[in-house]
């Protein structure tokens, strides 16, 4: 249960062990057994987790008729590499890609900026009605969207935003979503208040504290938020479905659904498109995790 950022546990153990030679071997065997067990669990877990992706990948190279047969075929027979080129022939895939990057990028940036500000207000500043407002914030996620859909639609119609990207972007610039505000608030609240006070004594403004003290310390949380918001907007099907009408404006999540039709689906093309849709997410995650997991070694301000 030792986190990676604590001093290397094994060396500590060895140091202790070398003082008592009799214990040394037993410690080593124990450590090795523990390592072996950990790897076993990780490998088994990975196998389970990797399953869908491998399946997705292999399906994307299959013949339409061979996707859901039993027993499952893991190696496509025959290989249909042209599934990938067909995707580009059948739908304006590049266009959808560009649209999605635009919408995701703009919505994500605004959402992170807004949520980090709002969460700071709720976590670090005191003002009348704060607790009540926070409760209101939380309750906004408790009403299922199905019953607010029509009023929201009417609202966006009045604003003249139908068939534009505004409903998919602008609301996120205002507030950033209760989920993320709550998440960041929890992370901010773990940081000692001494940090703020020390900065204040040095003459920092409140915004300065937010910008120079809290944000850098909350980098892991912001990294997580970046990944989660990216995924959320990248894969959002419902909002684009409701607010976009022109096919050229479609996002990927909407566009790849054009491979589905009444009772029949071009699964092989859908899977090939899904692979291409998923790839950036995996790359982003692999890249971003460096940032938010090995990012900082945090030492508390004790003294």
């Amino acid at each position: 249960m030792t986190p990676t950022n604590s001093p290397n546990r094994l060396t500590t153990v060895r140091r202790k062990a070398s003082l008592q030679p009799g214990w040394f071997n037993r410690y080593r065997t124990y450590a090795r057994l523990k390592q072996a067990f950990i790897y076993l669990v990780i490998l088994a877990g990975s196998a389970v987790m990797l399953f869908p992706l491998l399946w997705l990948l292999s399906s994307s190279f299959k013949d339409q008729a061979k996707i859901f047969i039993f027993p499952p075929q893991w190696i496509p027979q025959p290989w249909r590499f042209d599934n990938y080129t067909l995707v580009f022939d059948r739908i304006p895939f590049v266009r959808f890609y560009a649209n999605t990057i635009l919408v995701t990028g703009l919505a994500m940036v605004g959402q992170i900026a807004a949520a980090s500000l709002v969460a700071f207000g709720f976590a670090r500043l005191r003002f009348p009605g704060r607790d009540l407002l926070f409760l209101v914030l939380l309750s906004t996620i408790m009403i299922p969207y199905q019953v607010t859909l029509i009023p929201t639609f009417v609202l966006f119609r009045i604003l003249g935003w139908l068939d534009t990207y505004a409903p998919l972007i602008l609301p996120y610039w205002l507030g950033g979503g209760a989920f993320y505000v709550f998440m960041l608030r929890q992370f901010y609240m773990r940081l000692p208040v001494d940090l703020d006070d020390a900065a204040r004594i040095d003459g920092a403004s409140t915004f300065g504290i937010y910008w120079r003290i809290i944000l850098p310390q909350a980098r892991p949380a912001l990294g997580v938020m970046a990944v989660l918001t990216f995924l959320g907007h990248w894969n959002d099907f419902f909002n684009p479905l409701i607010y976009l009408n022109t096919t050229e404006k479609y996002t990927l999540a909407l566009g790849i659904n054009l491979f589905r039709s009444f009772q029949t689906t071009q699964w092989n093309l859908l899977m090939a498109a899904s692979v291409m849709v998923t790839l950036p997410c995996i790359l982003l995650y692999a890249f971003a995790q460096r940032y938010f997991i090995q990012g900082i070694v945090f030492t508390g301000l004790k003294g």
Partner: peptide, 13 residues
């Protein structure tokens, strides 16, 4: 995981 990163090392020490 992000939360585990925020635990001050000196506490473990």
């Amino acid at each position: 995981l992000a939360g585990l990163q925020g635990i001050p090392t000196d506490l473990y020490e």
